[in-house]
Write a protein that binds this DNA or RNA. Structure first.
Lengths: 334, 334
DNA sequence: GCCGGTCGTCGAAGCGCTTCGACACTCTCA
DNA sequence: TGAGAGTGTCGAAGCGCTTCGACGACCGGC
């Protein structure tokens, strides 16, 4: 089709118009007659023209690329991350943007680099910690950014996340409706709480508050991720709380271990103990038995983050904080 | 530090040299006196200069970005993917390149777009299928590419992967050494075999051949990923093969279900049945009991893919096929 | 003391695109 | 009928960088 890289000049020549006319056809920034437009578009597809990204970025000061900063760190819910990433890429494409992948271990320097070099127009950061080194940098950057998750001091930033407090509360509410009076939350590994990652803490707080509101007895524990540790945690839990009949699990890696442990301890789900998970749908569905769960709406969060960052790129103001309402899907475990 | 975007001209002025001199200091393509170099570098850091990526790409015809094409499709081993992605990003940075993330569901059009627009210099594709639509496109592209995985017809392409046939064989060998005479392979869900994904098939072939070589009895089955299906598969397996004492599991999502099923069937690991997994280390370590496993060397594969693609960018020729030797780590399950 | 050969630096010509101002038309309405 | 207001298109000026050819300055060898 092409003899190595077609330029806008060749398109213009082929269509018998000026270079600028082709550019305006593509951008729609000036009115072009229907006839001219058609000729130009025909030439574009006849020649197989694709605008050179570098030239476009240089002239327009827009690269049409956004950065996605992922944690890729121990203790993370990796499959969830992947879904976020996927959602962000898909959503970005709808706004005609591509996604540059940065790992957090490049640290703030990577962010500064891609921003200062105009490689990206905007940033989306995932797995933000309560006290995140990247946050001060974002404030001083000219490029708009959106965080997935909440730092301790979110003023002046744009943050999106599942409303984890509501998710914790929703699980409690569900168990209360089912008549359970003594329940427990098995959460993230303790290192995640120590690091001050928001979502774990917020789920716990929501859980604890809802337990009070419903007049239940409840306990919240961190939960490691090896089978043996999970087994011990679950065993001890029932030793300490013999009346326990409901369990909320907010730890994707531990979910199947918890179920195995219950089986081994001779506690049937849902007959002896009801289990609600906060995890991606596919994990809940694959479990035995399939789990009632609050799904983590990765796609929705990713899409929303991109929408917000695009709004900001357009210069519009957006809400500082967007919390997505948790949805509970009832399955065989409660 | 800066009053909005520093250009090379400002650096040149600050250092009292020509623009081209600054460029040569940065690229090292011409000799520069130590003294001049120092002054230029000082000015660069004093002004906080970062070269504009678009301008650089336009002038040099190199964007210093490589595309990473991920599957993000049902039935994939997502955490493994993430490690590949992470490894690719880290390795690319060492070559001073960034990584643009493409999802396979954009299809060939996305690949064509980023290549034709010179957004990327090269491509790394993951999870290549035996009959992959993207492969013909890669052959006609001017940009170099490397595949992680093997298509049916790899001639003229550069492919990297774990040697899954050897991995399957290695597991058999290990079980044979331990004195097991009748063993089974639980593999990927049948949809993965149907799709013709190479790694599943190659593991199975390696397994089957090694079973013959060692004079064992062996059977290879696909394995779905819900607990109930896994349970049935495992139960029926032992009904059909009462003498079975060794199991190879090549399905990350099913690993913990298999162990639960064995527990429920009253078969102790490793006493009654030995289990070897082909999966990432952390999954094997977290299982109960920790599993002897052939690890999937995601980091190494990713690093190697990047190294190869950089070699090709430099115009050097590289081997068509790179197979990484599997390593078996013995843990408590055999 | 002159010639050829580095060495270190400079100026200028692009790279392919967007965008601004200009200009030739065609309408509209006083 | 002519001023004013659009329309549709063009040419040219950059955007910030790399790279090519040129050119002094300095070197050693004869």
């Amino acid at each position: 089709m092409s003899g190595r890289t077609v330029t806008i000049a060749q398109v213009a020549k082929h269509a018998g118009v000026a270079v600028s006319t082709v550019s305006y056809v593509l951008s729609g920034k000036r009115t072009i007659s229907a006839d001219t437009r058609r000729r130009v578009l025909d030439s574009i597809s006849a020649l197989g023209y694709h605008p050179n990204a570098g030239a476009r970025a240089l002239a327009s000061k827009r690269s049409n690329v956004i950065a996605l900063v992922l944690p890729l760190r121990a203790g993370m819910h990796v499959p969830v991350l992947m879904r976020f990433a996927s959602a962000v890429v898909t959503a970005a494409r709808r706004f005609d943007h591509d996604v540059l992948l940065l790992t957090a271990d490049e640290g703030t320097e990577g962010i500064r680099r891609v921003a200062a070099s105009a490689l990206v127009d905007a940033l989306v950061l995932m797995d933000v910690e309560l006290d995140d080194r990247r946050v001060p940098l974002l404030r001083e950057l000219a490029e708009p950014s959106v965080l997935i998750g909440f730092p301790a001091e979110p003023a002046g930033l744009t943050c999106v996340d599942l409303d984890f407090a509501a998710a914790g509360a929703r699980c409690v509410e569900h168990l209360a409706e089912r008549g359970h009076e003594e329940i427990a939350l098995l959460g993230a590994p303790s290192v995640v709480y120590d690091r001050g990652t928001g979502f774990a803490t917020r789920t716990r707080d929501g859980f604890v508050e809802a337990v009070g509101d419903h007049g239940l007895k409840g306990v919240a524990l961190p939960c490691e991720e090896t089978f043996d540790e999970v087994y011990e945690t679950v065993r001890d839990l029932f030793l300490d709380h013999p009346g326990l009949s409901g369990l909320v699990v907010h730890n994707e890696a531990a979910v199947s271990h918890v179920l195995s442990a219950l089986r081994q301890l001779g506690r049937r789900v849902p007959h002896d103990v009801a289990v609600v998970a906060i995890c991606p749908d596919d994990v809940a569905e694959r479990a035995g038995p399939p789990l009632t769960s609050v799904l983590i709406p990765a796609e929705e969060v990713g899409r929303e983050a991109v929408r917000l960052v695009m709004e900001k790129l357009e210069g519009r103001t957006v809400p500082d904080s967007t919390l997505l309402t948790p949805l509970l899907a009832v399955r065989a475990s409660t």
